[in-house]
Simulated assay, not measured.
Amino acid sequence: MTAESVEDIRVSPTPDETYDASLAAAVPAVAAGLAMVNVVLAVLHAVALQGPARLVMVPVTVISAVLFAGTFLFLRRRRLPSHLAHPMTAGMLMVVVGSSVTTMVLVAEPRHSSTLMLVLVGAGAVVLSLRWLLAVLYLTWGAWIVAALAIGPSEEWPHYAVGLALASGLAVVVNQLRRAGVRDLADSLGAADAAAVRDHLTGLANRRGLAMVGPQVLEHARRQGDAVHCIFVDIDGLKHVNNTLGHSVGDEVIVAVADALREATRATDIVARWGGDQFCVVGPGPGMATLELERRVRDGVMAHSPVPADVWPARVSAGGAMLAPWDAGTLETLLGKADQEMYLRRSLRKENPRPTPRRAPSE
């Protein structure tokens, strides 16, 4: 676990996860639509077909309608796992393909190929992954070729072959356009969430980011049999800087302390801005002594201090705490102990102020 782990925090879903969730949410509507289509087809078959074709296709479409309606009712009460959305949708589409091909063979009429064209375009519109869309296309073409061979030669086959090819191409184009829209949405959400876990002023993790990464640091350290330390850092006198030189200069002080903390801590430490003039460092091991961290931060800030030393002496107060591998405390426990220690040290410092450090003269 390194400091760069904060940059890898992901709150929003990836584009693939967004595709899956979008399709999972659409599956009930797809099932309901296919149920209604099969009800209409059952009525049309009962009226238009004759003989064996009607005896076969009316029950097939009725059973399909019941199957799709049952799927719709089931998914209204239970959430479909995202990883099942693609195979279930592809399966429902192939049921329609099988029904259409069976009708085409029984009535020996190539014109029923038009139903397959609609199925292919619909497959592209429901945000199937490209892999599953291609599977539907391959199976549909295979079923259509088998039906054409079973029916026999006809002058209409070339026309319907061109129609199926155009429908297949349109399905891929529609699929990619839909996926591009979902990808843009996922990227926008990802950018928003990246900003949500990072402090906009300092670039450090914010409190939310620390709450997400901190438990991982604690868990990793315990698996390794290592302790975890936490140091709270408070900028002394920031209110005086704001009142004297303005809040914009106060922001420069906050950024300077943040940069100094980055330089003073290890790569395995997570440095976060807790809020206002407070920072927090969490990392594996016992960590450095609080006095040493104060000294390093002060030296780092004074090298490029944005304000004169008589206005702000580049001083911070730090308080630390540690959880041993056998301690049962949580991240909140560790943060609370370090926070109390920091406030105690700051209150003692106010009662016994130290001399103001002087900046080294410039050469």
Rank of each mutant, 00 (worst) to 15 (best):
M1H: 01
S5E: 02
E7S: 15
R10A: 15
P15V: 13
Y19V: 12
L23E: 01
A24Q: 05
A25L: 04
A26V: 03
V27I: 11
P28V: 02
A35T: 04
V40I: 12
A42R: 04
A42K: 02
H45R: 12
A48T: 14
A48D: 07
Q50D: 15
V56H: 14
M57E: 14
A65E: 00
A69Y: 02
F72I: 01
L73H: 12
F74Q: 08
L75H: 00
L75Q: 00
L80Y: 10
P81V: 05
H86E: 10
G91A: 13
V97R: 07
S99M: 12
M104L: 11
S114W: 09
L120W: 03
L130Q: 06
W132M: 15
W132F: 15
L137P: 00
Y138M: 05
W141N: 08
A143Y: 07
L149R: 13
P153M: 08
E155T: 11
W157N: 02
S168E: 03
V172D: 00
V172T: 06
V173W: 05
G181F: 02
A192P: 00
L201Y: 08
R222A: 09
A227I: 01
D234P: 13
L238D: 01
L238E: 00
V249M: 08
E252Q: 15
I254E: 03
A256C: 02
L261A: 13
R262D: 07
E263L: 14
E263K: 07
R266L: 12
D269G: 03
V271G: 08
W274M: 14
C280S: 09
V281H: 11
G283A: 07
P286L: 06
M288Y: 00
E294W: 05
V297W: 00
V297P: 03
D299I: 13
M302I: 15
H304F: 14
P306E: 05
V311L: 13
P313I: 10
A318Y: 06
L323Q: 05
L331Q: 03
K337Y: 10
S347Y: 02
R349H: 14
K350F: 10
R358C: 13
R359A: 15
